[in-house]
Write a protein that binds this DNA or RNA. Structure first.
Lengths: 293, 293
DNA sequence: CGGATTGTTGATAAAGTTCAAACACGGTGG
DNA sequence: CCACCGTGTTTGAACTTTATCAACAATCCG
């Protein structure tokens, strides 16, 4: 299994396990050899790429790098926050919690996402934030963000943009839940996640590690775990995609895209990046999968 | 029928009718007697109230006031935008459009909402924006917003906040579609809308004009119009709420709130404002409904 | 090896959709 | 004034999708 999720960078901790400290990349050149956190931030996003100065500004805003175990709740709804998390390794989620323990996930975050940047303008969140895997995240104090807003308006606009990217994804999730069938919802989610993972080199465009249970997929797609199970079986039997042992393997990307009515415009990826995902990659043909780290 | 939707301010045009020009309020005092557009913006929102200078800044950013007929599409997905709309009178909506003409509404906008402020950082939208009623809106060019970001960081933060309020509502809509039954979805939507309308004096906390068809409610709640019809009948028979002739009348707010599992924290309203909506107002009791216009 | 979590299957029930048809209502034009 | 038309609402019946309940198998982890 090639470097989809290099063990050296993140190890999937057991439910109760302790997160492994994560080794943060370093830039060889640069002022003072600052650790690099911003590498994946807004990567490939149309009209929001960060220049060297902006990355530096973000990197130097980080006051701490923290690790968390898998399946921890990091932020509870209502809590007042004065820092935000920039996800470096692992997966996180945000969910709306019902009193009866019924949860609905509202987003899944991949490395490079500013998970709860929303908390900066809002001061308090309306939902919970948690880890899915063990996680390594950079802590950015809101003071530093306020300073950025104060004297780097263009970077501020890009941070704003990052939060609106989340909003755009939320909208598509509303659409997914409101208009698509169970099969389509799963297909759509796999397509979306494939793209987002690929953007940060965690998918080779057909295959990626997705450490979720079928129950998690149910919380994402508004379905019961049991129904998810049957739907996944169908998708497998239809030779569209398999999901087994936390690995998603897309056998027929055009077919999956078609079924899920997936149109990636809402992710605001640059056309260059999207070009690798069109009708070229069919069936198991191991089609061209370039520029993968 | 008391001043829920004063005819002098907005007249519900027929499907094909022409929008009536809207008379914009004027402030008696103030520099140069500027027309007031910002009056309802972020009204009652926790930690984001606008001071006089900030309102002025917004008012003076408006270059034009435009009216639109009912049921028009104002902005199409993908279109590059250099202005945003501040809704003054009427209702607007945003929706994700499927190729087969199947639509899913992702938000409904009331006066005071910066409908497509998202377009400022994003430059182009991922969804359509349209009118529900005939509408009067102030046009704010992105140049002016950029200037605000440049030299009024605190106001910029509040505009950012306004877009994140939308995101918070999106999340709740995801929850609504993913976790609630048809009856609960409608109940939740009516509760949400009641609050938002009340915040801008378009609901007296129990009753408001909502010029939507049952098909519209279906597009909002991810249901067929037929099912909406049956659900509405149930809600009426259960003495929770009636929806007839575009008027929503809530007979049992606590009951409706309970059924819809409605918790308004995600709307970020000030506690003072929310206080009028708790368990006090029961049944048809015409309970205390103060400070209404 | 043993216990807990996760995945799988079947039977049954509930919720929501689809299709078809009728009804109400406000225009519009004769 | 009335007939007519279109939009929106209401009802019924058959059907599909998804949930629920109840086991049981497989897997993972300690």
């Amino acid at each position: 299994m090639p470097s989809l999720f290099p063990a050296a960078r993140i190890r999937l901790a057991s439910r109760t396990g302790r997160a492994t400290p994560c080794d943060v990349g370093r830039r060889d050149s640069g002022p003072g050899d600052l650790p690099v956190f911003s590498e994946q931030v807004l990567k490939w996003r149309k009209g929001a790429g960060l220049d060297a100065a902006e990355r530096n500004r973000i990197d130097s805003s980080v006051v701490e790098v923290r690790t968390f175990g898998a399946r921890e709740v990091i932020v509870r709804a209502g809590q007042t926050l004065d820092v935000s998390l920039l996800l470096i390794h692992g997966l996180m989620s945000r969910h709306v919690d019902d009193r009866d323990g019924v949860r609905q996930m509202v987003s899944v975050h991949v490395p490079g996402d500013f998970v709860d940047l929303h908390a900066f303008p809002l001061k308090t969140l309306d939902h919970d934030v948690g880890t899915l895997t063990s996680v390594c995240a950079a802590i950015v104090p809101h003071r530093a963000l306020a300073q950025i807003v104060e004297d780097a308006p263009e970077l501020a606009r890009k941070l704003w943009y990052a939060t609106l990217l989340d909003a755009a994804m939320h909208r598509k999730w509303v659409y997914r839940l409101g208009r698509l069938s169970a099969h389509q919802r799963l297909a759509h989610f796999f397509c979306e996640t494939n793209l987002r993972m690929a953007a940060v080199n965690l998918s080779d465009k057909r295959r990626f590690v997705l450490p979720l249970t079928q129950a998690d997929l149910g919380e994402i797609c508004g379905l019961t775990a049991i129904h998810v199970n049957r739907v996944i079986r169908d998708l497998r039997e239809w030779s569209l995609v398999t999901f087994r042992a936390s690995v998603v393997e897309i056998h027929d990307l055009p077919g999956l895209t078609e079924l899920g009515a997936f149109e990636p415009a809402y992710l605001y990826f640059e056309d260059d990046f999207l070009r690798g995902f069109d009708k070229t990659t069919t069936a198991d043909g191991h089609a061209a999968a370039p520029d993968d780290s």
